[in-house]
Write a protein that binds this DNA or RNA. Structure first.
Lengths: 181, 181
DNA sequence: GGCAGGTTGTTAGACCTTTTATTACCTGGT
DNA sequence: ACCAGGTAATAAAAGGTCTAACAACCTGCC
């Protein structure tokens, strides 16, 4: 017969225990600190990394890819051929990361690098037919899993969550947030 | 005189352009797909990685650390001495990642590994005095930056966002989401 | 034309994370 | 007492990310 202290039915005992301990500890040590803000970004990070971990381990690794490789193929699929520079902007990563990623995907035959005619420094990344087929297959499974996760919320809550996250993104310039070059 | 097409004052032109292109492309290719769900998780990932990038590049790297090392020191600060196993649970990462991280932090003199008396296999991670001082300094700056970001939202919106993200976290078990062991 | 300064993709070095395998240790049934 | 099976931390290999430095290339100004 479990006592209340055992909390046997708590949904995320580790997470809650940690979040509560954190709030209590920091407000005791720093009475002036912003507990809600801390809780907000701890929660944002936790939610994001939990969801991505599920996507990667249940879909992309079994399919022979990674989360990063999925993002790259998805970007090329929805935006068409891109320079590495533009791909980096769209995906929010460094040019070096794109270079590394493109090398791996090229060696798997999922994309090709084509020299730009207009600019001798530049390349254009294209999906191969294999890459095109691959991203369509993988996206179908990814989107199905996104749907599973989104059942946590009502349609209205989903729109609300998107708009709150967009509000945070839009605030970047106001606070001079560092962004990848 | 800029035309509307130039969209010179758009807040996140790359982000919006990409999100819109994605929605249009996938719904055209997969009429049955869940565009809102896709938008939701693309947005979640973008927001999380943008915020973390700002934290890491504006606070933790200049202080000689990383986002991961901050999280580890923070966990030990708020929860007290922990076994690597427990630290991994609280931070939501693998035991191997904790082992690696603890090694780096130990070599910087920020924590020590103490052999457990109860179990010959186990360790207990402790902050050193240096580590204690360090996390308090760094947390003050981190929390100040969290406050800057949170100004994007009203107090009510912050609570709402936390509760929506918690709802997603709570949904993990219902869909059998993969979690780190 | 020529050259200074900026841009493009790449590489090197440092760190992080995961999965898989390994070693040391504990625990419970015989 | 013993041994099979499980658990704790670690190591190895593969991949990803960043910054900084690089060579190749472009551009604009003289």
């Amino acid at each position: 017969m479990p006592t209340p202290d055992d909390a046997p039915n708590a949904v995320n005992p580790d997470y809650w225990q940690f979040a509560n301990a954190a709030a209590s500890r920091i407000s005791q040590e720093f009475p002036e600190c912003d507990v809600t803000a801390n809780r907000l970004f701890v929660t944002l990070f936790r939610a994001s990394s939990s969801v991505i971990y599920d996507f990667e381990s249940s879909i992309h690794r079994p399919a022979g890819g990674t989360w990063a490789s999925y993002r790259m193929l998805f970007a090329l699929w929805v935006a068409g051929p891109l320079t590495p520079h533009r791909a980096a902007e769209l995906m929010g990563m460094s040019r070096a990361a794109v270079s590394n990623l493109a090398g791996n995907l090229e060696s798997k035959g999922l994309l090709v690098k084509q020299a730009s005619e207009a600019d001798g420094r530049s390349l254009i990344l294209h999906l191969t037919d294999t890459g095109q087929t691959k991203i369509q297959e993988v996206f179908a499974r990814q989107n199905s899993r996104e749907n599973d996760w989104s059942q946590a919320l009502t349609e209205q809550e989903r729109e609300l969550l998107i708009s709150l996250l967009d509000k945070i993104m839009d605030h970047r310039t106001a606070i001079g947030a560092k962004t990848r070059k």
